[in-house]
Design a protein around this nucleic acid. Structure first.
Lengths: 199, 199
DNA sequence: CGATTGTTTCAGTAACTACTGAAATAGGAG
DNA sequence: CTCCTATTTCAGTAGTTACTGAAACAATCG
């Protein structure tokens, strides 16, 4: 079997050498990016998307698709899909530079804002449906035990009770989320005050 | 090809017929269980584990491994592993009945307690490592820019700033978690008061 | 218009996670 | 000890999700 003889520097394209300080910066950023990615993975968002977000956040300056691909060593397709996903979430933004053809992306800078966007979305997707289901269950149980001694049987009573306390919990939690979401920009101080009034 | 002729009632073991009310109760519980499972899936815990927990919670009475297997239609192995997992989390308990050989399981009944256990674990597993990493990054950056003009270069400055605001955010969030975790049993009212003092 | 550059889509596949069913293990009763 | 029942472990596999690379598409320029 023949082997192609290609000069190494053709395959591994030469890069501008990094100064020691630049190298250290890069290593630091990479560490942050990796950890952030791991966290994202346990959070519904997938690892790569989280890493891209971390990259844009920590760089503090706009990057284009190729920057992201190169830095994180991922394919064009993956980069494109993930960037779009992050834009859909609203935690990064597309950015056109004057006279430039290619698109850049930058992360929101306000951490409170980033997290409140995520919180809002998670509430909508995860808590709201559960709360709705609990209410639906309560209605079903009422119907089931109408005009019966059944309403007093243990099994029904127990299920009723459990549904009720779960509902109470989720309602309170929902209120907290709502306040958090609506007030993120001003930090938590105000949220706490508002909450105190609510109880 | 031959077919085995097995009486239907041999394959599908006869079950005690359910009354209309019991049937309705079961359907209601199943609805809750399914939704809870879906939510769990987006929460790091897997669907089956979440469903088992939902079952034990909503039933309000201890079940054994076979009850769980039959009700959720899962294998013995799966049931065994998942029940153990839930015990490890601490949101269900093993329970021996006098004179009975087999083990029963029951869910904690206090919703606040259940969620504070989950919150504590998630904080430990997800937030703490990130906070630690951020601090580590800050140290690395300091070293990198010692005795250099580098400290003033944009890229380093930007990264520094980002790390700092993320750290601030996570510290506040951590405090909230801590309060929540420590005070779950008494509901949120107290937590809110404590928080107010803290800021 | 065609050439050039950048972006999106998507079929195929790699990597991973969850589940089953059977075998191994544990432990109480006789 | 053996027998019996309950539980755990685990190899193999089904099912799922994430990623690549190439092709299709879009947009700008000369």
């Amino acid at each position: 079997m023949d082997t192609l003889e290609i000069p190494v520097e053709t395959v591994f394209a030469p890069r501008p050498a990094l100064s020691a300080a630049d190298e250290k910066l890069k290593v630091t950023q990479d560490l942050f990016i990796r950890r952030w990615g791991e966290m994202g993975a346990t959070w519904g968002i997938n690892r790569t998307m989280a890493e891209i977000h971390a990259l844009l956040y920590i760089m503090g300056q706009p990057c284009c698709t190729d920057d992201v691909m190169e830095r994180l060593n991922i394919s064009r397709g993956n980069a494109s899909m993930s960037l779009r996903g992050l834009c859909d979430w609203g935690i990064i933004r597309r950015l056109h530079k004057r006279g430039e053809r290619r698109e850049y992306f930058e992360s929101l800078t306000d951490v409170w804002e980033i997290f409140s966007i995520i919180a809002a979305e998670r509430k909508r997707r995860e808590m709201d449906p559960v709360l709705e289901t609990i209410r639906q269950c309560q209605v079903m149980l009422s119907e089931a035990s109408l005009g019966k001694a059944a309403a007093k049987r243990d099994s029904v009573r127990l299920t009723r009770e459990r549904l009720a306390s779960m509902e109470e919990f989720m309602e309170v939690t929902n209120k907290i989320f709502q306040q958090f979401i609506g007030n993120a920009k001003s930090g938590l101080t105000r949220v706490v005050k508002v909450l105190l009034k609510a109880f």
